[in-house]
Simulated assay, not measured.
Amino acid sequence: MDDETVERVRDVVAAIPPGQTLSYGEVAARAGLRSARLVGRILAEDGHDLPWHRVLRADGTCAPHIAAEQSARLRAEGVLLVDGRLPPELRRGRS
C-alpha cells in the first residue's frame, strides 16, 4: 500500500468530529478506495494517533478485539451503543 493511500485514510479519520462515527466503508469511500478492509488494516498499522474509535463496522458494532476500549471512548464522547451497536437511526447512509 502506498503512502498516498495511507495519508488519505488518515485524513478522513482525523476529520471525524468528536461524538460522530463513520463505518470502515464510509471512510474508504471518502478516501477514494473500494476496500473497507484496507481501512481497517491501515488503522491497525498506522492509526494509533488517530480517533480510530470513531470508525465502526457497517452494522454499527465495534471490532470484537477492541470493543471494550472503543465503546468506552465513544461513551466518553456521548456516543451510546445499545446492545453493543450504534442505533439504526444513527447509521443512516452506512456503506
Rank of each mutant, 00 (worst) to 15 (best):
P87Q: 14
L50A: 03
G32S: 07
V13T: 01
R30W: 09
A44G: 14
A68H: 13
E69V: 12
M1D: 15
R75T: 12
T5C: 07
A67N: 04
R85I: 08
Q70K: 00
G32D: 09
V82K: 14
A67E: 01
R37F: 08
V9M: 00
E69F: 02
E26K: 07
A68T: 14
W52E: 11
P87W: 11
L22Q: 09
I16L: 13
E45L: 10
H53L: 06
H48V: 13
R91W: 01
R8L: 06
S71W: 12
A15D: 10
V6F: 09
R92P: 03
D3T: 09
P51N: 11
P51Y: 02
G78T: 03
A36N: 04
L22D: 01
L90V: 10
L38K: 11
E77R: 13
R73S: 13
V55N: 02
E77F: 03
L56C: 04
D2N: 14
L81M: 08
P18Q: 14
A31V: 01
D83H: 10
G32R: 09
V9N: 00
I66R: 15
L86Y: 11
G19C: 09
R34N: 11
G25H: 05
G93T: 15
S71M: 13
R85N: 07
H53G: 11
Q70W: 00
A63D: 10
S35K: 00
E69Q: 13
